[in-house]
Design a protein around this nucleic acid. Structure first.
Lengths: 133, 133
DNA sequence: GTGCATGCAAACCGTTTGCACAATA
DNA sequence: TATTGTGCAAACGGTTTGCATGCAC
């Protein structure tokens, strides 16, 4: 991994904020000290940082909207391979209370996302031990 | 709210699947019985259904990617107004175990999203009681 | 008959890609 | 010097919008 001024600047911008900036926001930050940087470079750099374990993405559900006719409070199982989302109803999860000290943040809803492999993708990933040799 | 064949079809498609379809997926479903429907109508209908409490969106973070230099496991406070995301470190939340019966789903990570109002937006929404009358 | 919904196409926004040039190692 | 990163601009996919026509009320 080559060290370039752009990569340093992007990484610095990412570490400098307690928030979770979007690529665009990072781009604006970096531009203040490096006006020639391009948005494409910021995107590529963020991906590189992620690959090298120096950054991570917050939300893995951004690709497209997902709708649900189930309006009751529930939580979600999210397959990281096929991106299928399914509901879970679980009283223990429903009972989770927000921590008391949120520094002024006013919570209205607690949602639990359980990432993992759905039954189909799990079967594909571990294709039974006989087939595995 | 007018009842139209398109709206009925979109709502039926949404209720017919246990998954959480994207607008595109709903469009494909509806098209099988109503080939002339347009994707724009599906989008508009989903928004209408949401406004009338007949559907909801699963992930409210899809708008753009969000990066984080904090690689330790942590959870998130998400302001539903300004969309700012902040970390919370909380052992009680870290300790949440996935439910035992996930019907074959293999969990790898549990993430808690606490939606609500950040301190700035909360102050703006409730501008002290003296100002409220 | 009025007003809202539909469907088309273009616009739009966030993201990715291809390529020539420049910088790192 | 060989390789990889940068910056530009175009392409791309998902989403939204404007507008003329059609339908629900």
């Amino acid at each position: 991994m080559k060290v370039t001024p752009q990569r340093l600047a992007v990484y610095a911008a990412l570490m400098a904020t307690p928030e979770h900036p979007s690529p665009e926001e990072i781009y604006q930050t970096v531009r203040t000290t490096m006006p020639t940087v391009s948005l494409a470079t910021v995107y590529k750099t963020l991906e590189t940082l992620e690959q090298h374990g120096l950054a991570s993405q917050v939300a893995r559900l951004h690709v497209s909207k997902r709708y649900d006719a189930n309006l009751e409070p529930h939580h979600h199982l999210i397959c990281t391979v096929c991106r299928k989302i399914s509901d879970i109803r679980n009283e223990a999860l429903d009972a989770i209370a927000p921590p008391a000290d949120l520094s002024g943040f006013v919570p209205t809803e607690v949602n639990v996302q359980i990432f993992g492999l759905c039954i189909s993708c799990a079967a594909r990933a571990t294709p039974t031990e006989e087939n595995n040799g």
